[in-house]
Each structure stands twice: as structure tokens, then as C-alpha cells.
Write a protein that binds this DNA or RNA. Structure first.
Lengths: 168, 168
DNA sequence: TTAGGTGCAAATTCTTTGCACCCTG
DNA sequence: CAGGGTGCAAAGAATTTGCACCTAA
């Protein structure tokens, strides 16, 4: 529980508002799942959220957690760490570089930036541990996916669109 | 194939040297698996590497690819995008922030940096697509894992240590 | 020769889906 | 009351492991 009370309250209100606007139901489960993440300064995975929520909603099921998590993500109420719904990817480029990642198709491209390379991390980070590598991740839609999205005008609510990886 | 020939050659030489120093065998499979990633400007997942290598080594098996990938990663010859061996994690903090991630235990903490927030992305990124969010990821070992590693002096070659998530 | 490495097949772990019932709007 | 949402069970992916044979050193 790292987030402050006021901030949590604001998050919950935003949650209710967004659900109403999107016309989706405000169920007990969704409420608690969102609260679980909102109250946590951690960045829990589905299983962790599940365990947390289960203490308050014993009948909750793991698949509801998964489904809800993606709904919240589609609504823009939460985000994912790293690329969403992606497998682990590998990189043989040991030189300092950064990544542009398309959140829809997973396309990933390196880029360089001397400016970023020169920025020093704040001291607060040093207190956490030894940093070995720092890089920037720029997330968005690649040109192809942006074009596609514009065309479809987000017809599909559950973003079935997002494929499991594969570059162009 | 985005990397230049010279760079690829350098990577392969580094690979051979590192394997010898680490005292692990220089097998045909390892060679080709590393080459597959080194020659690619993409950041392939295990399955993609597998398909690529199979064209040159038809008998290769997917599990060898997985095993080799982690060996290479432990040797520091390749890195992973996002946290290695981690499940998808969720974040309800919509405010601009960055992450410190422990590569050993998965511990993740937010941090803030006005300086980073103000840096503009290079134009080369704009050509790739629409960036929606930019954040910095500082990877390293948290204090607890750093202490543990120092004690063990990396006894375990295959880093069996790395658990599947869970914060403290 | 010989220990580390590989392929195969089976086991795990993580995530998604189909379906019938339930509850919010 | 109607349709979206949930729980359950079972399917599907992705990744790992045990074991016997093979091969680089």
C-alpha cells in the first residue's frame, strides 16, 4: 500500500466514471480487482491480484481476474509493465540503446538518444539497489497499426486485435 | 537483418571468447542460436528464433532454444526485453513515472524524474509510429538480491535462483 | 573418454474459452 | 427483465524438466 488515500480515492472515482461512460457494468468483482491494484504500490501480476481480492471476495475466480484486467487495460484505467500479452523477447545488442514498442502488434525497434544516455538517475533509485542498465521504452502504435485502428474506429471492445507477437 | 556485417562478426567473436572463458561447450546449436539473434535487428521470441535456426539446423528442438537462450542471457551475451521470466504485471498509476526492476527477484518500484520527463524523443522515433507513453526502466539488483548474490558468488551457473516474481 | 549438451516426450505453469447461471442497470 | 458478467471446468499456449544418447574438448 504505497499510494496515498487521496490518490486511491481519486483512482476509484475515475474508475466508476469511466465504467459508466463506457457503458459496462460496475460489478463487485471489478471494483475489488481495480481497488487491489490501485491500492498497491507494487505492480502485481494476475495471480497476486487474485490472491489479494480473494480475501475480500472468496468466490472470485482467477479467470475473472484475467478478463477484468484486460477490460481495465482496454479502458485505459491500468497499464501493463513491458509489452502486453507478449512472450519474452531477446536482444543481442549490448550497446546502449532504447526501444520503440507497438502495443498492438509487438513490433519493436531500437533507437538511440545521446540526450537520454546522459541523464542521471535520481538518488531515490540508488537507494533501491544497484542499477546495471537503464533504457527508455517508448510505447505507442506503429504506423501500420495506427492506420488499422483509425479505419476500424475501435469496433472491437475487447481488443481481440492484439496478436501474439510477430513482426512485419 | 539490421545489424551490419562488422558488428555481427564482432558479436560472434565475443560469443566464442565468452563461451571459452566460461568453460562451456561451443556447440553447433549454440552458435546458430546466437547468430540468429545477433544477425537480427528484431528482438525475436524463442519460437521465432527456433524457426529461424531450424532452416539451418533442421534437427534443432525448441527446448534447446529455450535452454540456450537462458545460458546466453546468464553469460551476458544477450538481454531480454522487459523483465526476464516474468508474467505480465499491472499498474494503476497513470501519472508519469518510471520503474526500477530487480532482474533477480522481480521487485519493481516506481520513481520520478523531472529531467527524464522533459527529454524529447529523437525524430527517428516519430517515423516509426505514434508514441503514447514513454518511460525509463532501470534494471539491476535490489539490495536484498545484491547481498545474496555477493554471498553466493554466483555459484549456480544456470541462475536457478531467479524465482517467478513475488515481491517482498 | 567423459561430462556437458541435445532431442524427445511428458510435465508444468500461465492464460484463455465455452457454457449455464446470476446480478446490475 | 435482459444482456452483460461470473464461476467452473476444460482447453490452449508457453516454458521447463527427466532421461538416455551424442559429441566437443
Amino acid at each position: 500500500m504505497k499510494a496515498k488515500d487521496g490518490e486511491i480515492k481519486a483512482r476509484l472515482e475515475r474508475f466508476e466514471r469511466t465504467c459508466r461512460e463506457a457503458g459496462i457494468k460496475l460489478t463487485h468483482q471489478r471494483m475489488e480487482i481495480f481497488r487491489e491494484i490501485a491500492e498497491s504500490g507494487e505492480h502485481p501480476d494476475a495471480e497476486t491480484v487474485f490472491h489479494g481480492v480473494r480475501e475480500r471476495v472468496p468466490a472470485i475466480s482467477l479467470d475473472t481476474v484475467y478478463r477484468t484486467l484486460w477490460v481495465l487495460s482496454d479502458l485505459g484505467l491500468i497499464t501493463t509493465l513491458g509489452a502486453p500479452r507478449e512472450r519474452t523477447r531477446f536482444d543481442a545488442n549490448l550497446a546502449r540503446h532504447h526501444h520503440f514498442v507497438c502495443t498492438a502488434c509487438g513490433l519493436t525497434r531500437d533507437f538511440h538518444s545521446d540526450v537520454f544516455d546522459d541523464v542521471r538517475l535520481p538518488d531515490s533509485v540508488k537507494a533501491l539497489g544497484r542499477v546495471e542498465r537503464t533504457y527508455v521504452e517508448a510505447r505507442g502504435l506503429c504506423n501500420a497499426c495506427y492506420a488499422a485502428t483509425t479505419k476500424e474506429k475501435r469496433k472491437n471492445g475487447t481488443k481481440k486485435t492484439a496478436p501474439r507477437g510477430k513482426e512485419k
